[in-house]
C-alpha cells in the first residue's frame, strides 16, 4: 500500500498544494484530477525523487508502512509512465524491454521475460523493430510493459493517455488497468480527463488551485 501524508507543495511565492493525504491499495489506481499548473505532475516527481529544485515540498510517504521520503533515487523502485512513451529510439523493441529488467536476473530468464512481454503485446515479429516503426498505441503498450518489467514497487501515471486518439485510448486504458492488477502494485494517475479517471475504476481526488 502507498500512503501519502500531509503533502504540501509551494513555489517561492505561492502554495500550490496544501496538506494532501491519501492511501492506495495494491492493484488499485487512485486518480488525481485538477487544472493545469496546480502541481499534479510535481507530486509524481516528488514521489519519484526528481522534483525540480525551484519547488519546495513537505510531507511524507510510505510504502507498506515503510517511510520512503528520504530514500535515495537509486533505491526507490518507482515506475513512471508519461504522455510520451519515451522508448529509446536507438534501441530495438526487445532491447528496450531488456533494458528494464533488473541486472540480477539471469541472462536466459531475461530473454524469456522479454519474449513473454512481446507475446503479451502480440508483437513477436517486432522484436527487432525500432520504436519509430510502431504505431502510437503499440509504443504506449511497450512503454507500460517496459516499466513493469523493472518490477517497480508502485506506478505513477502522468497523463499517459492524453496523446492517443479516443478509440486507442479506451484500448490502452483497459490494458494498463489489467497489467496493474496483474502486477498487484499501487498506482497513481494524474489526469485532466474524467473519462481516464473513471476507466481506472478506483478512487478519485480533485485538487483545486490553492488561493
Amino acid at each position: 500500500m502507498l500512503s501519502v501524508k500531509a503533502f504540501s507543495l509551494s513555489t517561492s511565492d505561492k502554495v500550490l498544494i496544501k496538506e494532501l493525504s491519501f492511501d492506495i491499495e495494491n492493484g488499485q489506481v487512485l486518480s488525481i484530477m485538477g487544472p493545469s499548473g496546480v502541481g499534479k505532475s510535481s507530486l509524481l516527481h516528488f514521489l519519484s525523487g526528481t522534483l525540480s529544485s525551484t519547488l519546495t515540498a513537505t510531507g511524507d510517504f510510505f510504502l507498506n508502512n515503510e517511510s520512503f521520503h528520504n530514500k535515495p533515487i537509486a533505491n526507490r523502485k518507482v515506475g513512471l509512465l508519461q504522455q510520451m512513451p519515451l522508448l529509446f529510439p536507438h534501441m530495438s523493441i526487445i532491447e528496450n524491454l531488456l533494458f528494464a529488467i533488473p541486472p540480477d536476473v539471469k541472462k536466459q530468464e531475461r530473454q524469456a521475460l522479454a519474449q513473454q512481454a512481446l507475446e503479451k503485446l502480440e508483437m513477436r515479429d517486432k522484436a527487432n523493430s525500432l520504436p519509430n516503426e510502431l504505431s502510437g498505441g503499440q509504443q504506449a503498450r511497450v512503454a507500460l510493459l517496459r516499466t513493469l518489467l523493472a518490477k517497480p514497487d508502485f506506478l505513477l501515471l502522468d497523463e499517459p493517455f492524453s496523446k492517443l486518439d479516443p478509440a486507442l485510448r479506451r484500448e490502452v486504458r483497459s490494458f494498463v488497468l489489467e497489467e496493474i492488477r496483474k502486477a498487484n502494485i499501487p498506482a497513481l494517475l494524474v489526469t485532466h480527463d474524467a473519462e481516464d479517471a473513471k476507466a481506472m475504476e478506483g478512487p478519485c481526488k480533485n485538487i483545486k488551485k490553492a488561493v
Binding site: 519519484s48 526528481t50 533515487i73 537509486a74 533505491n75 518507482v78 515506475g79 513512471l80 508519461q82 510520451m84 519515451l86 529509446f88 533494458f99 528494464a100 533488473p102 541486472p103 517496459r146 516499466t147 523493472a150
Partner: peptide, 11 residues
C-alpha cells in the same frame, strides 16, 4: 525525460 526514465528503470 529519456535519461530520467532510464534511471528510473535502472539507476
Amino acid at each position: 525525460n529519456y535519461l530520467l526514465q532510464a534511471n528510473r528503470l535502472r539507476y
